[in-house]
């Protein structure tokens, strides 16, 4: 029965079926499945599969958003059943495209996938000043600041953000992730960012790792 529930959870997320996802979550809890195991073994594999299918051009942004909504419906029900203090925090992310850069399509995909995976995301949009990244991260009580840059001429703003965080004594307070077409792992290392993601699925995986390590 448990396996059937897990399969149902995966399928509900893959289909982006909000009602089915909520129903499976309730049935799973009624069956006595541990809430955290229900998320980890049922819903998370589903949303991971959605991310992979999106990354290989077999599933598209509207379906990704629907899957995220289904995931959200299920996790709301399951989280309510977890005793306080024992729940898994998805993490809080402030994200934006750096100052001088108006490209936001890649960032949109990352935002969607992070939300789908249970992260609380504050999307600052595009052309975001360094100071605003920091102010909003403090206000939002973020765990991670994500910045995107699509131009070789705007990548420098990611370095500026790292320097500003250091100067403000906040480098240890927030983890930083960088992405965007010209951005590389070496660039992330060079400027002192905590992670670089090549694509949206990778961003989710690394964000989880950063939350665990924090």
């Amino acid at each position: 029965m448990t396996d059937e529930i897990y399969a149902g959870a995966r399928e509900a997320v893959l289909k982006g079926d909000i009602d089915a996802a909520a129903d499976v979550a309730r049935r799973g809890l009624d069956e006595g499945i541990d809430p955290i195991e229900l998320i980890n073994n049922g819903f998370i594999p589903g949303i991971n599969e959605v991310g992979d299918l999106f990354g290989t051009g077999q599933l598209f942004l509207p379906e990704l958003i629907k899957a995220a909504k289904a995931m959200q419906a299920a996790t709301d029900i399951i989280n309510a059943a977890i005793p306080e203090g024992e729940g898994q925090e998805g993490g809080r992310v402030v994200i934006g495209t750096v100052e001088g850069d108006v490209h936001d399509i890649g960032k949109t995909i990352v935002v969607s996938l992070l939300k789908a995976n249970g992260f609380e995301v504050l999307d600052l949009g595009r052309d975001v000043k360094t100071e605003r990244f920091i102010e909003e991260a403090q206000r939002f009580n973020a765990d991670i600041i994500g910045s995107s840059a699509l131009l070789t001429t705007t990548m420098g703003a990611q370095k500026k953000l790292e320097e500003a965080l250091r100067q403000a004594g906040l480098k240890e307070r927030f983890k930083t992730m960088v992405g965007g077409a010209p951005v590389t792992r070496r660039w992330a290392r060079r400027i002192g960012a905590d992670a670089f993601a090549e694509n949206a699925s990778e961003a989710v995986r690394l964000a989880r790792e950063l939350i665990v390590s924090a």
């Binding site: 958003i65 629907k66 909504k69 936001d104 960032k107 949109t108 935002v111 969607s112 999307d123 949009g125």
Partner: peptide, 9 residues
């Protein structure tokens, strides 16, 4: 790009 993450498909 703003509407989609809000679920306004």
């Amino acid at each position: 790009a703003e509407l989609m993450p809000q679920g306004k498909i």
